[in-house]
Design a protein around this nucleic acid. Structure first.
Lengths: 121, 121, 121, 121
DNA sequence: GTGGTCTAGACCACG
DNA sequence: GTGGTCTAGACCACG
C-alpha cells in the first residue's frame, strides 16, 4: 500500500498517515493480520521523521486498528472492535458536510450517489 | 440563532462559529438577507475575543456565505454560489468517515438513515 | 502541585507525569477547573523536554481528565466520565499485585488496611 | 498449567510469563516443589523464543519464586521469602489504580468486592 | 531489527 | 503566550 503525503494540506502528516491506513483497512487493500511497513521503512519511503510515523502508529494502536510488537513490527488487527456507530466527532463532521452540500445546491440524489460510490458496491 | 462553543473540542473556536452559521443557513434557521449579530455583540455574547469572531466572519465572507457592509453589518447572502458539488476537502473527509463507519460494522442502511436524518425531510 | 520525576524508574517520564496528575485529581489536590502549569513551565521546572510534558498532557486529554486550549493552557475537566469500573489493564495489574501480596505472607486484613489508607477516609 | 500470551498487550512477553507463574503459585495451581516445564518445552508450547522464557525464569529465580538445578530443571521453591509487605513499585501501582478507581466513580464497597474476589475466600 | 522514549530546537496556528 | 507539529538524532528494551 502506498501512502501519499500532501504537504500543502492542513491535515497534520501523522493524521494523513493514520487516515490512509484506516481507509486501506476499510477498502480491503490492507487485510487483517497484514504486516505494515516498519516505522523506519515508511518514514524513509515518504521522507519524514520516524517520530511522525510512530505517532500515527500509536494512534492506530490506541484506536484498536493495528497492533505493534517489537518482533514483528506493526500488523492490522484481526478483530477490530465493532462499535456499529459513528463517533460524535464524525457525526459533527458529517452534519457539517451535509449542510455544505445542501447549500451548494447538490441534490439528495447526487449526494447519495457520492456516498454509494464511496461505500462501494 | 444561538452559537454554542464547545471548549473541549479540538475544532478552533473561529471554525466552530463558522460551522454553526453555515449549518444555520443550511437548515433555514438563518434566512437569506438576515442580519447577523455584530462582531462585538457576538463576541460578548459567547465571551470570546472579537478577533476570533471577526476571523469567522471573514472566512464566511470569503466563502460567499455572508456579505458585510459598513452600514448594515453582516448579512446572509441572498444568492450563494451554487457549485452543486463537494469541495475536495469535504470529499476526503467524507471518504474517511465512510471508511470508519464501514470498519465499525455499521450497515449501509444504518448509515443512509443517519444521512437522511441529517439532510432533513 | 509538585511533580517529582524518578529518573531511575522503569516508568517512562511522560507516564510518571500523567500518573501524578491523575493522583492529584483523585486526591483533590487538583480541583475541577484548576489550571495546570503550562507545558513550558512544567518542562522547565522538572528539567525535561517540552515534548515529553506535551505527551503526558495529550494522554490526559485523550483520557478525558484534562482539557487544553491555546488561550488558557491546560485545565482539569469539570465533568470527568464516570465509568464506575476498572479498566481491563488495571484489573490485570490489581490481580498481579494481590497475588504477590498473598505470596509475601501479607494477611487480607493488612492488605485491606493498605487499601483503606490509600482510598482515604 | 497453561501460559497464555496476549500479543496485543503492552506487557512484554517475558513479564507475562513471569506474572502468570507468580499468579499460579499464589492461587495454588502451582504447588511448592512442583516442576516447571523446561525452557525449551515452554518456548515451543507458546511459540516464542527460548531466550524470552529463559529471561522469565531468571527473574523468577532472582525473586526467589523458583529454583533451578541442572538435574531437575526449574521447580517452585518450597520456602518463599515472607516479606509480608508490598514492594515500593507495587505500592505505587496500587495507589495509581485506587486513584483511577475513585475518579471513575467506583464506590469503596464495589472496589472492596473486586479485591475480595481476587483474593479468594 | 523492531518499536518506544527522549532531547534540543524550530516553526506554526490560535487567541 | 499557548499548545501542536515536526525534525534530526540518539539510546534503550525486547525478541
Amino acid at each position: 500500500m502506498i501512502i501519499k503525503i500532501n504537504e500543502y494540506s492542513d491535515v497534520p502528516i501523522y493524521l494523513q498517515i493514520r487516515n490512509q491506513i484506516v481507509m486501506g483497512i476499510s477498502s480491503g487493500e490492507l487485510s487483517a493480520g497484514e504486516q505494515l511497513p516498519t516505522v523506519r521503512a515508511l518514514s524513509m519511503e515518504i521522507g519524514i521523521n520516524t517520530m511522525t510515523v510512530s505517532k500515527a502508529y500509536q494512534i492506530l494502536k490506541s484506536e484498536g486498528y493495528i497492533m505493534t510488537d517489537r518482533k514483528n513490527g506493526a500488523r492490522v488487527r484481526t478483530e477490530i472492535n465493532q462499535t456499529k456507530s459513528l463517533s460524535n466527532v464524525n457525526k459533527e463532521e458529517l452534519k457539517r458536510i451535509v449542510s455544505e452540500a445542501k447549500i451548494s445546491g447538490l441534490s439528495k440524489g447526487e449526494f447519495d450517489k457520492i456516498i454509494n460510490e464511496m461505500w462501494g458496491k
